[in-house]
């Protein structure tokens, strides 16, 4: 049986209840990957609940520097500026919120001021809650200032000019930028550089990473943004999800390797598996 007839057979058997995309693909490859990935997560989370050792996380200089940045703000008596990025409640914003939670706890401990800014109003209550929670956990619930968690505007360059103004007027000593950024990323980073702030950035937009690298002191690369919560909290369950993430990447790498080998020898089996189903 060739691949095309196998596909037709599967489509007639599963087509009734499995959704197809615009190209009439069944999305089976994605379903198989989701099952594999969920199984990896379940296995490693189960393992993390016991006492068996998990893999060690390598050092991420940008995340290690967060404490140094907050310490610098404390010494100088100047605020930390925390930028949650340009996205709504997406995975990158949640990754940023996890880092915000860590930073807020440190800020409360050192009695430093932190200004948190968000572009989307829908992120504001979540950000407010994250910072407020850190003040409660730090034993200083009265120290929380609601005006230090700010929604500026949802307009891209209006938001950029707002950040520029805050950076200069408040003369921030640490500029932390984690989340999704667009063309305005360099405006934030250069404003921070000019105000003499220590700058740490991380984005899941690959096209903006090259702007952060020259302008910031530390820059998280690629998925380091998503590894931050596990790295900072040292929580075993979160670390387990990182191990599962690596296994997911291994799956893709093996598939790519097989694709290269098969295609080199004139077979389109892997390519068909990825595109036909």
């Amino acid at each position: 049986m060739d691949i095309a007839s196998l596909r037709e057979g599967l489509a007639s058997a599963l087509g009734g209840w499995l959704a197809t995309d615009a190209n009439n693909r069944l999305g089976l490859t994605t379903v198989v990957f989701v099952i594999y990935y969920a199984s990896c997560n379940a296995y490693w989370i189960f393992k993390a609940r016991g006492n068996s050792p998990l893999r060690k996380l390598r050092r991420i200089a940008g995340l290690d520097a967060i404490d140094e940045a907050i310490g610098r703000c404390t010494e100088m008596g100047r605020p930390v500026l925390y930028n949650l990025g340009m996205d709504g409640l997406s995975s990158s914003t949640f990754a940023s919120l996890a880092i915000l939670s860590y930073v807020a706890i440190r800020v409360v401990r050192y009695d430093t001021r932190m200004i948190t800014v968000t572009r989307y109003a829908s992120v504001l209550p979540v950000a407010e809650n994250t910072v407020r929670q850190s003040y409660v956990e730090g034993g200083k619930p009265d120290g929380f200032r609601i005006e230090d968690v700010r929604f500026l505007t949802s307009d891209q360059f209006g938001f950029a000019s707002g950040i520029l103004g805050i950076t200069v007027r408040e003369s921030v000593a640490a500029n932390l930028m984690f989340g999704y950024y667009y063309a305005e990323s360099l405006i934030f980073a250069e404003a921070g550089f000019e105000s003499g702030a220590i700058q740490i950035a991380g984005t899941n937009n690959n096209s903006q990473t090259p702007f952060f690298i020259p302008a910031c002191d530390y820059c998280l690369l690629g998925e380091e943004l998503f590894a931050a919560s596990a790295y900072l909290s040292k929580d075993r369950i979160r670390t387990a999800t990182l191990v599962a993430q690596d296994l997911g990447k291994l799956f893709i790498a093996v598939l790519m390797g097989l694709g290269v080998i098969f295609t080199t020898f004139g077979s389109n089996v892997i390519q068909n598996l990825m595109t036909l189903f």
Binding site: N41, V126, G222, E223, L225, F226, S229, R238, T241, G248
Partner: peptide, 24 residues
């Protein structure tokens, strides 16, 4: 980098979905 980011995004979403990420 894109593959890594996509995997990271899925992992983050999964952590939110099953309630591992609760800082917010």
């Amino acid at each position: 980098m894109s593959i890594g980011l996509s995997m990271g995004g899925i992992a983050q979403t999964m952590r939110n979905l099953v309630g591992i990420e609760r800082g917010h």
